[in-house]
Amino acid sequence: MLNIALLGAGRIGEVHAKSITSHAECRLVAIADVVEAAAQKLAARYGAKARPVNDILSDATIDAVLIATSTDTHSDLIERATAAGKAVLCEKPVDLSLERALECEATVMASGKPVMIGFNRRFDPQFATLKRAYDAGEIGKAELLAITSFDPAPPPTSYIKVSGGLFRDMMIHDFDMACWIMGGAPAKVTATGASLVSAEIGAAGDIDTAVVTLSWADGRIAVIKNSRRAGYGYDQRVELLGSQGLLSAKNLLEHTVEKITSEGAVSATPVYFFLERYMRAYEAEWAAFIEAVKSNTPMPVTLSDGVAALACAEAATRSARSGETVTITADMLGSVAIEASTAA
């Protein structure tokens, strides 16, 4: 039985607390948050104790920590937790700064402690099935990947101001999906974005609508579309065209009932937000982390994967500002070389 501490008692912390306490091979023993009342409230719900971060990290009986704090604290907490001998699962992204994330990666590699980055969408049953089918050669060589990720409504402007921007906060998931499916980081990134949904988002210096094209050295292409507003629900789709066919993962609907009359056909809308769409993915992600810790095997999503996704976000940010295509250089990827690999 592994003793687990949760750092961060906000909305995503609550999601992770549920996954931790649902797992039969670990117990949630401590929760920390900058808002002590939030930590106490969540701890009381799950029979844990609210404790300061320093106490948690110095407690040798705690085997692992899950970091679900604000992004600007991630790198520091990863370094401190691994230095204290803990296994770590940290929410995305590694940091708001690519330079700082690279420093964190180097520090953690020297420590030898396991770190997993929380790109939960890899563990979604729909996307995982698509990836397995592609890896099994069912559609031949990948040629064109299309990822659609639309939120039902924008977050508060107060969140936008500290989020690091759409590319680092929202599209970071899709960058990881593209790297994961294609088997490595792209060579070039071209991005365009605008503030079409909310004037407040634009005034805060961010965008709410974006399209990014990724290209690999062997010519493969991925197109990612993001919007902060899709009034019909949470639109999450992946389509992969290969030399021998097509794989597609469609939206999960609120129900599967379809009505057909002389006036036409009507079906349900997509589930409304990420909690409904990805709760199973969060649970599978946590199970994969625990399995890696207990068996002392490599993490299924590494800190280097987190750096690669952040490098894509950095390149997209530069491209959107300059209007030019940005090359992802080796120094942007740290220990990860740019892969010009072809699909199996």
Rank of each mutant, 00 (worst) to 15 (best):
A136S: 10
I4T: 09
I172K: 01
R229P: 00
A194T: 12
Y278N: 15
C179M: 02
G184Y: 03
E79L: 09
G306L: 07
A222M: 04
D33K: 02
A249R: 02
D76P: 00
L252E: 08
L247N: 03
K86H: 04
R220A: 03
V15L: 15
G231L: 10
I56W: 02
S215Q: 10
M116I: 13
A315G: 09
I20R: 02
A204F: 10
S267Y: 14
L2T: 02
L98K: 07
L214P: 03
T82S: 01
I20Q: 03
R51M: 13
T213C: 09
G245Y: 04
A178G: 03
L42R: 09
N296Q: 15
D95I: 04
V223A: 08
S58A: 15
M116S: 12
V266L: 15
A68T: 09
P114E: 03
L252F: 10
H23M: 13
S19T: 13
N251W: 05
E276N: 12
C104Y: 02
H16Y: 09
T148P: 01
T329I: 07
V301Y: 07
A337S: 14
E276L: 13
I56Y: 03
A50N: 08
M279Q: 15
M116D: 11
S163M: 06
Y159S: 14
P125K: 12
N120Y: 15
G334E: 06
M109D: 14
V223S: 10
F289Y: 08
T71H: 03
L130D: 05
A199N: 13
E14Y: 11
I328M: 06
Y278Q: 13
C104Q: 02
